[in-house]
Design a binder for these strands. Structure first.
Lengths: 205, 205
DNA sequence: TAATTCGCATACCGCTGGTATGTGAAAGGA
DNA sequence: TCCTTTCACATACCAGCGGTATGCGAATTA
Protein backbone atom coordinates (compact mmCIF):
# COMPACT_ATOMS: atom_id res chain seq x y z
CA UNK A 1 0.00 0.00 0.00
CA UNK A 2 2.76 2.50 0.78
CA UNK A 3 4.36 1.54 -2.57
CA UNK A 4 3.74 3.95 -5.40
CA UNK A 5 4.71 3.20 -8.93
CA UNK A 6 4.26 6.38 -10.94
CA UNK A 7 6.69 9.26 -10.53
CA UNK A 8 3.85 11.59 -9.70
CA UNK A 9 2.28 9.30 -7.13
CA UNK A 10 5.64 8.87 -5.45
CA UNK A 11 6.17 12.62 -5.18
CA UNK A 12 2.63 13.02 -3.88
CA UNK A 13 3.19 10.53 -1.12
CA UNK A 14 6.44 12.14 -0.13
CA UNK A 15 4.89 15.61 0.09
CA UNK A 16 2.06 14.27 2.20
CA UNK A 17 4.42 12.49 4.53
CA UNK A 18 6.62 15.56 4.86
CA UNK A 19 3.62 17.66 5.82
CA UNK A 20 2.56 15.11 8.41
CA UNK A 21 6.07 14.87 9.79
CA UNK A 22 6.66 18.61 10.09
CA UNK A 23 3.15 19.19 11.34
CA UNK A 24 3.58 16.62 14.05
CA UNK A 25 6.96 18.01 15.02
CA UNK A 26 5.68 21.56 15.34
CA UNK A 27 2.40 20.64 17.01
CA UNK A 28 4.28 18.58 19.58
CA UNK A 29 6.84 21.30 20.21
CA UNK A 30 4.66 24.41 20.35
CA UNK A 31 1.06 23.25 20.63
CA UNK A 32 -1.72 23.41 18.07
CA UNK A 33 -2.69 27.03 18.62
CA UNK A 34 0.83 28.40 18.37
CA UNK A 35 1.65 26.71 15.09
CA UNK A 36 0.68 28.46 11.88
CA UNK A 37 0.07 26.81 8.55
CA UNK A 38 2.69 29.16 7.13
CA UNK A 39 5.18 27.69 9.57
CA UNK A 40 4.30 24.15 8.64
CA UNK A 41 4.51 24.64 4.90
CA UNK A 42 7.77 26.56 5.27
CA UNK A 43 9.28 23.71 7.30
CA UNK A 44 8.03 21.25 4.70
CA UNK A 45 9.42 23.37 1.85
CA UNK A 46 6.08 23.62 0.12
CA UNK A 47 3.25 26.17 0.00
CA UNK A 48 -0.24 26.33 1.40
CA UNK A 49 -1.52 25.14 -1.95
CA UNK A 50 0.12 21.77 -1.29
CA UNK A 51 -1.26 21.56 2.23
CA UNK A 52 -4.82 22.29 1.15
CA UNK A 53 -4.44 19.83 -1.70
CA UNK A 54 -3.75 17.04 0.82
CA UNK A 55 -5.83 18.10 3.82
CA UNK A 56 -9.09 19.92 4.34
CA UNK A 57 -7.62 22.51 6.69
CA UNK A 58 -5.72 22.90 9.93
CA UNK A 59 -7.96 20.72 12.09
CA UNK A 60 -7.94 18.00 9.41
CA UNK A 61 -4.15 18.01 9.30
CA UNK A 62 -4.06 17.74 13.07
CA UNK A 63 -6.49 14.88 12.98
CA UNK A 64 -4.30 13.01 10.50
CA UNK A 65 -1.30 13.62 12.74
CA UNK A 66 -3.22 12.42 15.78
CA UNK A 67 -4.29 9.33 13.89
CA UNK A 68 -0.66 8.51 13.27
CA UNK A 69 0.24 9.14 16.91
CA UNK A 70 -2.59 6.99 18.24
CA UNK A 71 -1.69 4.14 15.94
CA UNK A 72 1.91 4.34 17.06
CA UNK A 73 0.93 4.16 20.73
CA UNK A 74 -1.55 1.35 20.10
CA UNK A 75 1.09 -0.66 18.27
CA UNK A 76 3.58 -0.26 21.09
CA UNK A 77 1.00 -1.30 23.66
CA UNK A 78 -0.15 -4.28 21.63
CA UNK A 79 3.38 -5.46 20.92
CA UNK A 80 4.34 -5.40 24.59
CA UNK A 81 1.11 -6.93 25.81
CA UNK A 82 1.06 -9.73 23.25
CA UNK A 83 4.50 -10.84 24.41
CA UNK A 84 3.02 -11.82 27.78
CA UNK A 85 1.38 -15.24 27.98
CA UNK A 86 -0.55 -14.68 31.20
CA UNK A 87 -3.68 -12.51 30.78
CA UNK A 88 -3.08 -10.54 33.95
CA UNK A 89 0.51 -9.86 32.97
CA UNK A 90 -0.78 -8.72 29.61
CA UNK A 91 -2.87 -6.11 31.37
CA UNK A 92 -0.10 -4.78 33.59
CA UNK A 93 2.52 -4.88 30.87
CA UNK A 94 0.14 -3.10 28.52
CA UNK A 95 -0.45 -0.38 31.07
CA UNK A 96 3.28 0.10 31.56
CA UNK A 97 3.79 0.22 27.81
CA UNK A 98 1.05 2.82 27.48
CA UNK A 99 2.63 5.03 30.10
CA UNK A 100 5.98 4.76 28.36
CA UNK A 101 4.53 5.52 24.94
CA UNK A 102 2.22 8.33 26.00
CA UNK A 103 4.98 10.22 27.79
CA UNK A 104 7.11 10.41 24.65
CA UNK A 105 7.75 14.02 23.58
CA UNK A 106 6.11 13.63 20.17
CA UNK A 107 2.99 12.11 21.71
CA UNK A 108 2.01 13.72 24.99
CA UNK A 109 0.82 17.14 23.96
CA UNK A 110 -0.78 16.10 20.70
CA UNK A 111 -2.65 13.10 22.09
CA UNK A 112 -3.52 14.20 25.61
CA UNK A 113 -3.73 17.99 25.66
CA UNK A 114 -4.59 19.39 22.24
CA UNK A 115 -6.46 16.37 20.93
CA UNK A 116 -9.65 16.80 22.96
CA UNK A 117 -9.66 20.58 22.57
CA UNK A 118 -9.13 20.63 18.80
CA UNK A 119 -11.40 17.77 17.79
CA UNK A 120 -13.86 18.02 20.64
CA UNK A 121 -13.96 15.47 23.42
CA UNK A 122 -16.47 13.14 21.79
CA UNK A 123 -14.50 12.82 18.56
CA UNK A 124 -11.27 12.43 20.47
CA UNK A 125 -12.80 9.73 22.62
CA UNK A 126 -13.92 7.83 19.53
CA UNK A 127 -10.39 7.86 18.16
CA UNK A 128 -8.92 6.90 21.50
CA UNK A 129 -11.40 4.09 21.84
CA UNK A 130 -10.62 2.82 18.36
CA UNK A 131 -6.92 2.74 19.15
CA UNK A 132 -5.06 2.54 22.43
CA UNK A 133 -8.03 2.43 24.81
CA UNK A 134 -9.42 -0.53 22.92
CA UNK A 135 -6.57 -2.73 24.07
CA UNK A 136 -7.35 -1.91 27.67
CA UNK A 137 -11.01 -2.79 27.24
CA UNK A 138 -10.02 -5.98 25.40
CA UNK A 139 -7.65 -7.03 28.16
CA UNK A 140 -10.29 -6.43 30.79
CA UNK A 141 -12.92 -8.26 28.77
CA UNK A 142 -10.58 -11.24 28.42
CA UNK A 143 -9.95 -11.32 32.15
CA UNK A 144 -13.64 -10.99 32.85
CA UNK A 145 -14.41 -13.90 30.54
CA UNK A 146 -12.00 -16.15 32.43
CA UNK A 147 -13.53 -15.13 35.74
CA UNK A 148 -10.53 -13.26 37.06
CA UNK A 149 -12.44 -10.03 37.39
CA UNK A 150 -15.46 -9.24 39.44
CA UNK A 151 -18.46 -9.55 37.18
CA UNK A 152 -19.11 -5.85 36.92
CA UNK A 153 -19.38 -4.28 33.46
CA UNK A 154 -15.89 -3.59 32.12
CA UNK A 155 -16.58 -0.44 30.13
CA UNK A 156 -16.84 2.00 33.03
CA UNK A 157 -13.78 0.54 34.68
CA UNK A 158 -11.84 0.78 31.43
CA UNK A 159 -12.77 4.41 31.01
CA UNK A 160 -11.81 5.38 34.53
CA UNK A 161 -8.52 3.53 34.25
CA UNK A 162 -7.91 5.21 30.93
CA UNK A 163 -8.47 8.58 32.52
CA UNK A 164 -6.19 7.74 35.39
CA UNK A 165 -3.43 6.61 33.05
CA UNK A 166 -3.77 9.65 30.82
CA UNK A 167 -3.37 11.84 33.86
CA UNK A 168 -0.44 9.72 34.98
CA UNK A 169 1.25 10.12 31.63
CA UNK A 170 0.76 13.88 31.72
CA UNK A 171 2.23 14.01 35.18
CA UNK A 172 5.16 11.74 34.43
CA UNK A 173 6.14 13.92 31.50
CA UNK A 174 5.37 17.26 33.12
CA UNK A 175 8.20 19.56 32.08
CA UNK A 176 8.00 21.51 35.33
CA UNK A 177 7.69 18.85 38.02
CA UNK A 178 7.64 15.36 36.52
CA UNK A 179 6.10 12.62 38.59
CA UNK A 180 7.99 9.61 39.88
CA UNK A 181 7.35 6.50 37.74
CA UNK A 182 7.63 4.11 40.68
CA UNK A 183 5.22 6.15 42.78
CA UNK A 184 2.74 6.26 39.93
CA UNK A 185 2.92 2.54 39.42
CA UNK A 186 2.50 1.80 43.09
CA UNK A 187 -0.69 3.87 43.02
CA UNK A 188 -1.96 2.37 39.78
CA UNK A 189 -1.39 -1.28 40.63
CA UNK A 190 -3.85 -1.36 43.54
CA UNK A 191 -6.45 0.15 41.26
CA UNK A 192 -5.97 -2.71 38.84
CA UNK A 193 -6.02 -5.21 41.67
CA UNK A 194 -9.30 -3.78 42.86
CA UNK A 195 -10.91 -5.13 39.72
CA UNK A 196 -10.19 -8.73 40.68
CA UNK A 197 -13.01 -10.95 41.78
CA UNK A 198 -13.51 -10.64 45.52
CA UNK A 199 -13.79 -14.44 45.76
CA UNK A 200 -10.31 -15.71 46.65
CA UNK A 201 -7.47 -16.12 44.13
CA UNK A 202 -9.46 -18.50 41.87
CA UNK A 203 -13.20 -18.51 41.35
CA UNK A 204 -15.11 -21.70 40.61
CA UNK A 205 -15.41 -22.90 37.01
CA UNK B 1 -14.97 43.25 49.22
CA UNK B 2 -17.54 43.02 46.40
CA UNK B 3 -19.04 46.28 47.70
CA UNK B 4 -18.01 49.36 45.78
CA UNK B 5 -18.84 52.83 46.98
CA UNK B 6 -18.01 55.24 44.16
CA UNK B 7 -20.23 55.42 41.10
CA UNK B 8 -17.26 54.79 38.87
CA UNK B 9 -16.01 51.80 40.86
CA UNK B 10 -19.48 50.30 40.76
CA UNK B 11 -19.69 50.65 37.01
CA UNK B 12 -16.22 49.21 36.67
CA UNK B 13 -17.13 46.13 38.67
CA UNK B 14 -20.29 45.62 36.68
CA UNK B 15 -18.48 45.81 33.36
CA UNK B 16 -15.89 43.35 34.58
CA UNK B 17 -18.53 40.95 35.80
CA UNK B 18 -20.50 41.22 32.57
CA UNK B 19 -17.39 40.39 30.57
CA UNK B 20 -16.69 37.38 32.78
CA UNK B 21 -20.30 36.24 32.55
CA UNK B 22 -20.60 36.53 28.78
CA UNK B 23 -17.13 35.13 28.27
CA UNK B 24 -17.96 32.12 30.37
CA UNK B 25 -21.25 31.59 28.61
CA UNK B 26 -19.71 31.71 25.15
CA UNK B 27 -16.62 29.68 26.05
CA UNK B 28 -18.81 27.00 27.56
CA UNK B 29 -21.18 26.95 24.61
CA UNK B 30 -18.78 27.10 21.67
CA UNK B 31 -15.30 26.39 23.02
CA UNK B 32 -12.38 28.76 23.45
CA UNK B 33 -11.14 28.66 19.85
CA UNK B 34 -14.53 29.35 18.31
CA UNK B 35 -15.27 32.40 20.41
CA UNK B 36 -13.95 35.76 19.23
CA UNK B 37 -13.28 38.77 21.40
CA UNK B 38 -15.62 40.68 19.12
CA UNK B 39 -18.36 38.24 20.01
CA UNK B 40 -17.72 38.58 23.71
CA UNK B 41 -17.66 42.36 23.78
CA UNK B 42 -20.75 42.51 21.58
CA UNK B 43 -22.62 40.21 23.98
CA UNK B 44 -21.43 42.31 26.89
CA UNK B 45 -22.47 45.52 25.13
CA UNK B 46 -19.03 47.04 25.39
CA UNK B 47 -16.00 47.32 23.10
CA UNK B 48 -12.59 45.71 22.97
CA UNK B 49 -11.21 48.73 24.74
CA UNK B 50 -13.14 47.73 27.84
CA UNK B 51 -12.01 44.14 27.61
CA UNK B 52 -8.35 45.07 27.34
CA UNK B 53 -8.78 47.54 30.15
CA UNK B 54 -9.82 44.72 32.46
CA UNK B 55 -7.85 41.75 31.12
CA UNK B 56 -4.48 41.26 29.47
CA UNK B 57 -5.87 39.43 26.47
CA UNK B 58 -7.93 36.44 25.44
CA UNK B 59 -5.99 33.81 27.43
CA UNK B 60 -6.07 36.05 30.51
CA UNK B 61 -9.84 36.44 30.26
CA UNK B 62 -10.18 32.69 29.94
CA UNK B 63 -7.97 32.20 32.94
CA UNK B 64 -10.15 34.53 34.99
CA UNK B 65 -13.22 32.61 33.87
CA UNK B 66 -11.60 29.31 34.73
CA UNK B 67 -10.66 30.64 38.13
CA UNK B 68 -14.29 31.40 38.78
CA UNK B 69 -15.37 27.98 37.58
CA UNK B 70 -12.79 26.16 39.68
CA UNK B 71 -13.77 28.08 42.77
CA UNK B 72 -17.41 27.27 42.17
CA UNK B 73 -16.67 23.56 41.88
CA UNK B 74 -14.38 23.60 44.89
CA UNK B 75 -17.04 25.30 46.99
CA UNK B 76 -19.66 22.76 46.01
CA UNK B 77 -17.35 19.88 46.83
CA UNK B 78 -16.31 21.38 50.14
CA UNK B 79 -19.86 22.17 51.18
CA UNK B 80 -21.05 18.62 50.50
CA UNK B 81 -18.02 16.97 52.05
CA UNK B 82 -18.05 19.07 55.19
CA UNK B 83 -21.62 18.03 55.89
CA UNK B 84 -20.44 14.45 56.45
CA UNK B 85 -19.09 13.64 59.89
CA UNK B 86 -17.34 10.39 58.99
CA UNK B 87 -14.02 10.88 57.14
CA UNK B 88 -14.67 8.08 54.67
CA UNK B 89 -18.14 9.42 53.91
CA UNK B 90 -16.55 12.83 53.35
CA UNK B 91 -14.37 11.29 50.66
CA UNK B 92 -17.15 9.49 48.85
CA UNK B 93 -19.60 12.37 49.18
CA UNK B 94 -16.95 14.77 47.93
CA UNK B 95 -16.33 12.59 44.90
CA UNK B 96 -20.01 12.47 44.11
CA UNK B 97 -20.27 16.21 44.50
CA UNK B 98 -17.33 16.71 42.19
CA UNK B 99 -18.90 14.56 39.50
CA UNK B 100 -22.14 16.50 39.81
CA UNK B 101 -20.43 19.88 39.66
CA UNK B 102 -17.98 19.05 36.88
CA UNK B 103 -20.69 17.77 34.57
CA UNK B 104 -22.58 21.03 34.69
CA UNK B 105 -22.90 22.67 31.27
CA UNK B 106 -21.04 25.85 32.25
CA UNK B 107 -18.18 23.88 33.73
CA UNK B 108 -17.28 20.79 31.74
CA UNK B 109 -15.76 22.22 28.59
CA UNK B 110 -14.04 25.17 30.22
CA UNK B 111 -12.50 23.23 33.08
CA UNK B 112 -11.78 19.86 31.54
CA UNK B 113 -11.29 20.33 27.81
CA UNK B 114 -10.11 23.83 26.97
CA UNK B 115 -8.39 24.56 30.27
CA UNK B 116 -5.32 22.38 29.76
CA UNK B 117 -4.99 23.31 26.10
CA UNK B 118 -5.27 27.06 26.57
CA UNK B 119 -3.15 27.49 29.71
CA UNK B 120 -0.88 24.52 29.18
CA UNK B 121 -1.15 21.41 31.27
CA UNK B 122 1.26 22.50 33.99
CA UNK B 123 -0.50 25.78 34.66
CA UNK B 124 -3.88 24.08 34.54
CA UNK B 125 -2.72 21.47 37.00
CA UNK B 126 -1.55 24.13 39.40
CA UNK B 127 -4.97 25.75 39.35
CA UNK B 128 -6.71 22.43 39.69
CA UNK B 129 -4.48 21.51 42.60
CA UNK B 130 -5.14 24.83 44.32
CA UNK B 131 -8.88 24.30 44.03
CA UNK B 132 -10.96 21.17 43.62
CA UNK B 133 -8.16 18.61 43.57
CA UNK B 134 -6.88 19.93 46.87
CA UNK B 135 -9.96 18.70 48.66
CA UNK B 136 -9.35 15.20 47.36
CA UNK B 137 -5.76 15.22 48.54
CA UNK B 138 -6.85 16.64 51.90
CA UNK B 139 -9.48 13.97 52.37
CA UNK B 140 -6.97 11.24 51.56
CA UNK B 141 -4.37 12.77 53.85
CA UNK B 142 -6.90 12.88 56.67
CA UNK B 143 -7.79 9.24 56.16
CA UNK B 144 -4.13 8.30 55.98
CA UNK B 145 -3.43 10.11 59.24
CA UNK B 146 -6.11 8.08 61.02
CA UNK B 147 -4.74 4.85 59.62
CA UNK B 148 -7.68 4.06 57.39
CA UNK B 149 -5.57 4.05 54.27
CA UNK B 150 -2.62 1.89 53.38
CA UNK B 151 0.48 3.84 54.20
CA UNK B 152 1.46 4.60 50.64
CA UNK B 153 2.05 8.22 49.62
CA UNK B 154 -1.26 9.92 48.92
CA UNK B 155 -0.21 12.30 46.17
CA UNK B 156 0.06 9.76 43.33
CA UNK B 157 -3.22 8.15 44.34
CA UNK B 158 -4.91 11.55 44.45
CA UNK B 159 -3.68 12.42 40.99
CA UNK B 160 -4.78 9.14 39.45
CA UNK B 161 -8.18 9.42 41.09
CA UNK B 162 -8.46 12.98 39.90
CA UNK B 163 -7.73 11.87 36.36
CA UNK B 164 -10.25 9.07 36.62
CA UNK B 165 -12.93 11.42 37.90
CA UNK B 166 -12.22 14.05 35.27
CA UNK B 167 -12.66 11.39 32.62
CA UNK B 168 -15.79 10.19 34.35
CA UNK B 169 -17.23 13.70 34.34
CA UNK B 170 -16.47 14.10 30.66
CA UNK B 171 -18.13 10.82 29.92
CA UNK B 172 -21.17 11.46 32.08
CA UNK B 173 -21.82 14.73 30.28
CA UNK B 174 -20.88 13.55 26.80
CA UNK B 175 -23.48 15.15 24.52
CA UNK B 176 -23.32 12.20 22.11
CA UNK B 177 -23.40 9.16 24.36
CA UNK B 178 -23.53 10.12 28.02
CA UNK B 179 -22.33 7.56 30.53
CA UNK B 180 -24.52 5.99 33.17
CA UNK B 181 -23.98 7.59 36.61
CA UNK B 182 -24.64 4.37 38.50
CA UNK B 183 -22.21 2.41 36.34
CA UNK B 184 -19.56 5.04 36.81
CA UNK B 185 -19.98 5.04 40.54
CA UNK B 186 -19.85 1.26 40.75
CA UNK B 187 -16.53 1.41 38.94
CA UNK B 188 -15.17 4.28 40.99
CA UNK B 189 -16.07 2.96 44.41
CA UNK B 190 -13.83 -0.12 44.23
CA UNK B 191 -10.98 2.15 43.26
CA UNK B 192 -11.52 4.17 46.39
CA UNK B 193 -11.83 0.99 48.44
CA UNK B 194 -8.53 -0.21 47.08
CA UNK B 195 -6.84 2.59 49.00
CA UNK B 196 -7.90 1.16 52.33
CA UNK B 197 -5.33 -0.48 54.54
CA UNK B 198 -5.05 -4.14 53.62
CA UNK B 199 -5.16 -5.16 57.28
CA UNK B 200 -8.75 -6.09 58.05
CA UNK B 201 -11.52 -3.53 58.69
CA UNK B 202 -9.63 -1.86 61.54
CA UNK B 203 -5.88 -1.58 61.83
CA UNK B 204 -4.08 -1.68 65.19
CA UNK B 205 -2.99 1.76 66.44
C1' DT C 1 -14.58 75.25 39.16
C1' DA C 2 -10.32 74.01 37.24
C1' DA C 3 -7.28 70.02 37.04
C1' DT C 4 -6.86 65.24 37.01
C1' DT C 5 -8.01 60.62 36.75
C1' DC C 6 -9.59 56.63 34.41
C1' DG C 7 -13.06 53.61 32.33
C1' DC C 8 -13.98 52.84 27.98
C1' DA C 9 -14.58 53.87 22.73
C1' DT C 10 -12.45 54.48 18.18
C1' DA C 11 -9.31 53.54 14.69
C1' DC C 12 -5.93 50.91 13.05
C1' DC C 13 -2.33 46.96 12.23
C1' DG C 14 0.01 42.49 11.12
C1' DC C 15 -1.04 37.99 10.64
C1' DT C 16 -3.95 33.98 10.38
C1' DG C 17 -6.76 30.27 8.19
C1' DG C 18 -9.03 29.76 4.04
C1' DT C 19 -10.25 30.30 -1.15
C1' DA C 20 -9.92 31.05 -6.13
C1' DT C 21 -7.17 30.67 -9.81
C1' DG C 22 -3.00 29.85 -12.51
C1' DT C 23 0.72 26.57 -14.30
C1' DG C 24 3.80 23.20 -15.81
C1' DA C 25 5.26 18.59 -15.81
C1' DA C 26 3.68 13.80 -15.86
C1' DA C 27 0.20 10.47 -17.75
C1' DG C 28 -2.66 8.86 -21.47
C1' DG C 29 -4.43 8.39 -26.18
C1' DA C 30 -3.82 8.69 -31.51
C1' DT D 1 5.54 11.36 -31.72
C1' DC D 2 2.59 14.94 -30.64
C1' DC D 3 -1.44 16.54 -28.73
C1' DT D 4 -4.63 16.45 -24.86
C1' DT D 5 -5.83 15.81 -20.33
C1' DT D 6 -4.83 15.35 -15.64
C1' DC D 7 -3.33 16.88 -11.32
C1' DA D 8 0.09 18.20 -7.79
C1' DC D 9 1.24 22.26 -6.37
C1' DA D 10 2.28 27.55 -6.57
C1' DT D 11 0.53 32.30 -6.55
C1' DA D 12 -2.43 35.91 -5.24
C1' DC D 13 -5.79 37.42 -2.54
C1' DC D 14 -9.42 38.03 1.27
C1' DA D 15 -12.22 38.60 5.63
C1' DG D 16 -11.68 38.29 10.28
C1' DC D 17 -8.76 37.59 14.20
C1' DG D 18 -6.10 39.12 18.50
C1' DG D 19 -3.72 43.02 19.86
C1' DT D 20 -2.13 48.16 20.24
C1' DA D 21 -2.19 53.23 20.24
C1' DT D 22 -4.77 56.96 20.98
C1' DG D 23 -8.87 59.89 21.87
C1' DC D 24 -12.58 61.42 24.96
C1' DG D 25 -15.86 62.59 28.41
C1' DA D 26 -17.84 61.84 32.87
C1' DA D 27 -16.66 61.01 37.65
C1' DT D 28 -13.31 62.35 41.14
C1' DT D 29 -10.25 65.39 43.51
C1' DA D 30 -8.01 69.79 44.94
Amino acid sequence: MPEATGARARQREQTRRTLLREGRRLFAAHGYADVSLSGIVAAARVTKGALYHHFDGKPALFRAVLDEVQEEVADAVAATADAEPDPWDRLTAGCRAFLAAATAPGVRRIMLVDGPAVLGWSAWREMDEANSARHLADALAGLAASGVLADRPVEPAARLLSGAMNEAALWLADPRAPGDPDAVWEALEPMLESLRASRGPDADR
